[in-house]
């Protein structure tokens, strides 16, 4: 009653801003490392000696447009988009149920179910998936036993998803990405759905809206900031999964790691690292224009 629901406690961004106001050093350190990254990306590597030339150039960015590098960017973008969408579709009903209906022990079970996988080692989970998806793994065995191998074979014959098994197919990479990022989508979604007061849904019904109208006009827009927040996480695909499950084709994370770590091509690594930042900025700008943050 004291705090009207239309003025919900402000979000993480506000609190973060607060931190920066109180401790400007934090911001400086963050901006500083970002600036260093940006600066590096405007250097280039000397083709002849492999030494980093500390002169301003756009050459390194031009290198991003080499076919194999464009491949990596495009591959990452497509994977991130597909994973994000799949996560959103899967997460919504779970988050909605948890926010609206789960009470008491069910709520506890929900949190446990969502968070538990986060406590176990990331690597262990990915290895486990490798075993599940392997040619002679649990999934293949179950498919053989139930006569549903044709489904797996069907997936593996789709152009772009080929592999000798799910574990070596990009589809396997996709599955594991979805598994790993799902909690990061569910939690912010659930948080934003929970912030929608029941009275708002009642108001909608009271004014004549059907359930689906309420969903489209009230629930979805109000949950959208959570979806966007979740998708920011899922967009930052890590480099470990595709090293273990998939067809070894590179994503941006691994490319950065390799360019920096093995090749010593720090400018190109930096330029690669700038790409997801740019994608995120464009994405957030588009989302803002589409009104995704109106509910904040």
């Amino acid at each position: 009653m004291t705090a009207p629901a239309i003025l919900p406690a402000r979000g993480v961004s506000d609190r973060l801003t607060g931190v920066f106001w109180r401790r400007p050093n934090v911001l400086l350190a963050l901006l500083g490392s970002l600036a260093a990254l940006l600066l590096q990306s405007f250097y280039s590597i000397d083709e002849f000696s492999g030494v980093v030339k500390q002169e301003f150039t756009l050459k390194t960015y031009a290198e991003l447009f080499r076919p194999q590098n464009l491949d990596i960017i495009l591959r990452t973008l497509v994977m991130a988009a597909v994973v994000t969408m799949a996560c959103a579709v899967l997460a919504f009903p779970i988050a909605y149920f948890a926010a609206r209906y789960a009470r008491g022990p069910w709520k506890a079970a929900f949190y446990l179910g969502v968070m538990l996988p986060l406590w176990s080692s990331y690597l262990v989970k990915v290895y486990a998936w490798k075993l599940i998806l392997a040619k002679e793994g649990i999934l293949g065995w179950a498919a053989d036993g139930t006569g549903t191998s044709f489904i797996i074979n069907g997936i593996l014959s789709v152009p772009g998803l080929e592999g000798s098994s799910l574990s070596t197919s990009p589809f396997g990479t996709f599955l594991v990405f979805v598994y790993v990022w799902l909690p990061y989508m569910i939690l912010p979604m659930q948080a934003s759905l929970e912030r929608v007061p029941t009275s708002m849904l009642e108001a909608s019904a009271d004014l004549g809206a059907t359930r689906s109208q309420t969903f489209r006009s009230v629930i979805l827009p109000l949950a959208l900031p959570g979806v966007i927040a979740g998708s920011i996480f899922t967009f930052s695909l890590t480099h470990i999964i595709p090293q273990i499950v998939g067809d070894s084709a590179r994503f941006i994370g691994l490319a950065v790691y390799q360019q920096q770590g093995t090749a010593g091509n720090i400018p190109l690594a930096a330029a690669f690292a700038v790409v997801p930042i740019l994608i995120m900025l464009v994405y957030l700008a588009l989302a803002k224009r589409a009104g995704a943050f109106d509910a904040l």
Binding site: M1, A203, D206, L207
Partner: peptide, 29 residues
């Protein structure tokens, strides 16, 4: 059900839709 009754409610917390401007809130019904 509520949406078929010719009755409307002013909620205690007002329950205005935060993502819509005032005009769209009023025009919602």
């Amino acid at each position: 059900p509520p949406h078929l009754r010719n009755v409307n409610t002013v909620f205690q917390d007002y329950a205005l839709f935060p993502h819509m401007n005032v005009r769209d809130n009023v025009a919602y019904g």
